[in-house]
Design a protein around this nucleic acid. Structure first.
Lengths: 232, 232
DNA sequence: CGGCACGTTGAAGGGCTTCAAGCTCTGTGG
DNA sequence: CCACAGAGCTTGAAGCCCTTCAACGTGCCG
C-alpha cells in the first residue's frame, strides 16, 4: 500500500499533496495492467473510476456508428484518463486502449472529487489539465477543417515527438512507441493507404525512416515546413 | 452598479452565489456592446478579461495561417467566452466575433480565480462548463474525421436547433440568428458553394426552407437520418 | 435605385478513398 | 527451431466527393 502511496506522490497531478490525502487516495487505488490491444475502460460504460498511466502508452478512441475508430489522444505515463467523466458520473464517451503492454492506477472519481474540494491546488491542476486538452482539441478541429492530409500527418508526428521522442544522433528522433500506419490514419481522419503513400514519399526524400510500427524522424525541420505549408 | 449585480445573479454560472461575492464581481464588471462583425477579443492578445454574453450571438473563430477562418463554437446569452484563458493569463487562442449586435459583460480573470477558490460550487460549474466544451470538441473531431460534409452540415443545424431554435407550426423550427452559407461552411470545414448546393437539395426535398442568412428546419427527423447516415 | 454582400450554378480538376492483389515481416505452435 | 498463418504494409487503378474558379442572379440597405 505505501508502495502505491509513493507511486502516487511521484505523479505530477498529485505532487505536493498532504500525506494524509495521499494516503486516502492510495488506500482506494488499485493497479490495473493491460496488454496491447486491451481496454482499461470502454465507451458507454458508467464512469466511476479514472486511470493514471504508470507505464506504457494508451490511446483514447471513439467508435463511430459505422465501425470506424477515431483516436482522440495518446496517453503516456503521468497522464490521467477519464478523470472528468468519472467525477461527473457520466458515461465514458470513448474507450481507452493499450497501444502496448501498460500499467495504470485505477482511482474512484468520487474520492477525487472530495480531494479537489479539500485541496485547491489539486483542483487547479485538474482544471489546467482539462484546459490544455480543450486547447489541443480546438487545434485539431482547426487542422481537420482547413489543412490537407499530408500537413495533418506531419503535425501528428511532430506532436508525438514532444510526447515520446527519443533523440538519436544529429537531429534524428525516434518515436518510442508502436505506431502503425493504421494508428496514424485514425489520428488524422484518413486511411492507412494514404498514410503509407505519404510516408513512402517522405522516406524517399530522407525526411523519415519508416519501419514496421516504428518511425524515426530524420529531418524535423522539413516536417515543420510541410505542416505549415511553407513554400518549398 | 446594483443593476449589474442583478444581471449577474440571473446568469446560470453565477446562480446561488453569496451576495458579497456577487457584489465584488459586479464592481469589477463593465458592459461591452458590439455590433455585427466586431470582436470582443482577438486571437493573440493577452487574456486578462473574459466575457459573459447578455444578448445576441457571438462565435469563437480561429484564423489559420493561410487566411481561412474556422468557427469553434457559437455563444448565446448565458455563455462565458475566454474564461479559462483569462484565468490562466495566457494568450487568446481565437477571436470572439459578434454574429449580430450583442451585449456582453467583461470580467477580470484574476478576480474570477479568487472567487473560484472561495466558492467550491462556482469552481464546479466552471469545470462542468469546460468539460462540456471538451466533450463537444471531441464530437466534432470524430465528425470531421469520419463523416461526409452533408452529414456534418446536418449535425450543425441540429446543434443550432438546440441552441437558438424557435419552434413554429408542426415540427418546423426556425433558427433565431443570422446564419449565412459562409458561416455554415466555416463551422464544418467546407466551402460556401458546397453548403449552397446541399441546402438547395434539402430545400427541393422539403427538409428546410433556406433564405438569405436565415434557415428554417421543416423536417428535423429527415436531418437526423442524414446526420446518422441511416438507410433512406 | 444603385451598389454590394449574399447566394446560385456550372465546369474542371485534384486529393483522397475504396477496392484489390500481392508482398514482407513477425511471432507462435507444432 | 522452423514453418506458416496472419498482421502489417505497399502499390495500382478507378472514381467520387469536394474544392476551386468563374460568371451570373438576387435582394437588401443606404
Amino acid at each position: 500500500m505505501s508502495e502505491i502511496r509513493d507511486t502516487l506522490g511521484k505523479i505530477d497531478l498529485f505532487a505536493g499533496l498532504p500525506v494524509s490525502l495521499l494516503d486516502r487516495l492510495a488506500g482506494a487505488a488499485h493497479r490495473v495492467s493491460v496488454r496491447k490491444g486491451e481496454f482499461v475502460l470502454r465507451q458507454g460504460e458508467e464512469a466511476h473510476l479514472f486511470f493514471v498511466v504508470l507505464a506504457g502508452r494508451l490511446r483514447l478512441v471513439q467508435h463511430t456508428a459505422d465501425g470506424k475508430d477515431v483516436t482522440m489522444s495518446v496517453f503516456v505515463p503521468g497522464d490521467a484518463i477519464g478523470l472528468i467523466v468519472a467525477i461527473m458520473d457520466e458515461l465514458y464517451p470513448g474507450s481507452a486502449e493499450a497501444l502496448e503492454d501498460s500499467d495504470t492506477l485505477a482511482l474512484p472519481g468520487d474520492l477525487m472529487w472530495q480531494a479537489m474540494n479539500d485541496n485547491a491546488p489539486l483542483a487547479v491542476r485538474v482544471l489546467k489539465m482539462v484546459a490544455g486538452r480543450l486547447k489541443e482539441a480546438h487545434s485539431r478541429i482547426r487542422e481537420l477543417s482547413a489543412e490537407r492530409t499530408e500537413q495533418r500527418v506531419a503535425r501528428s508526428l511532430l506532436r508525438l515527438v514532444q510526447k515520446v521522442g527519443a533523440p538519436e544522433s544529429d537531429d534524428a528522433v525516434r518515436l518510442d512507441m508502436r505506431l502503425g500506419r493504421q494508428d496514424l490514419a485514425q489520428m488524422n481522419g484518413t486511411t492507412l493507404e494514404t498514410v503509407s503513400r505519404i510516408l513512402a514519399v517522405w522516406e524517399r526524400d530522407g525526411i523519415v525512416r519508416a519501419g514496421r510500427e516504428q518511425i524515426t524522424i530524420l529531418n524535423p525541420h522539413a516536417l515543420v515546413v510541410i505542416a505549415e505549408d511553407l513554400p518549398h
